[in-house]
Simulated assay, not measured.
Amino acid sequence: MIRKLHQPFVCLAALLATGSAVAQAATTGTVEAGLLHHSLSDGFGTWNQQFVRGSLRTSDATVWNADLVNARQFGAHGTLVVGGVSHVFNEDWYGSLAGSHGSSFFYPQARADAVINRKLGAARDVVATVGVTAVNAHDGHRDRSLLLGLSWYLPNAWVLQGGTRINRSNPGGVMANVKYVAATWGYDKQQYVALRYDMGEEAYQYIGAGSADLLVNFRSNVISGTWRKWLAPTYGFQLRAEAYHNPFYDRRGLEAALFKEF
């Protein structure tokens, strides 16, 4: 159940977390607002979201962030509240903590994430990532997962990423592991273009509030593309397309947002 919509996009998040760009350090915060619409096959209807995201840099090393999401999925309404902090410890180490709470069956009742990153090599152009996640669902299901990843910062503004999330779901002790690869190109204050592909297993997924509305132990894959474009030094837009497939339905859709930096 770990893989859900509206998770931070790994490629762009990794770029922003390093704080390596001079322009990034000059930005105090960001406010972003947008809409999402996805269509599902096999009579599963549509998904719609409205969201507001924000970040605030309180020092050269620390950035706080928060999301508020209003969503309608599988015919039900729900909200999601997310809060977190990223911190650069020194020139080699940086990490983040995040927590969230959802009000409906399709969001976790509680989720906590902790991630630590280490720059490697003489040029510090490779970043190793280790993270842990704990998810408690509204009906008592629990997920505990380990994230392992590598990011390679190449010349000419390219970043390549790959990794795996090893997940154990209870009750039942079901293993549901996911692998991902991603590529990002771009420059801060100009544009970023990113592609990502995930494939693996899901232990369970809720498609309704009843005990019978549960998909169990299946494979799925998702491909997504993100374009973040600055129209001026302090504002711009972001578009994100996503295509998801499992044995029960397909999901296709677009997210559009405007952002303002200050």
Rank of each mutant, 00 (worst) to 15 (best):
V159T: 14
G163W: 09
T164H: 08
G186L: 06
G163A: 12
G162D: 12
L195F: 11
N156A: 15
Y187Q: 08
A183C: 02
Y153E: 11
L195K: 04
G186A: 08
V174Q: 06
V178I: 10
Q161G: 11
Q190K: 15
S169I: 10
Q191P: 00
T184F: 09
N177L: 04
A176W: 10
T164C: 05
V178D: 12
T184N: 08
Q161A: 02
P155K: 08
R168P: 00
V174N: 01
G172T: 10
Y192C: 01
R165K: 02
M175Q: 11
S151F: 09
N170C: 03
V159C: 05
Q191A: 12
Q190F: 13
P171S: 05
S169C: 02
G163K: 07
W158N: 07
T184C: 13
G162N: 06
G162F: 10
V159R: 11
G186H: 08
K189Y: 09
M175D: 10
L160W: 13
V181H: 00
A183D: 00
N156C: 09
T184M: 12
S169L: 05
Y192Q: 07
V178Q: 15
V159G: 00
P171T: 01
R165D: 11
K189R: 15
N167M: 03
W158Q: 01
Y153D: 07
T184A: 09
N177M: 01
V181C: 00
I166A: 05
V159S: 09
K179H: 07
T184W: 12
V181F: 05
N170S: 15
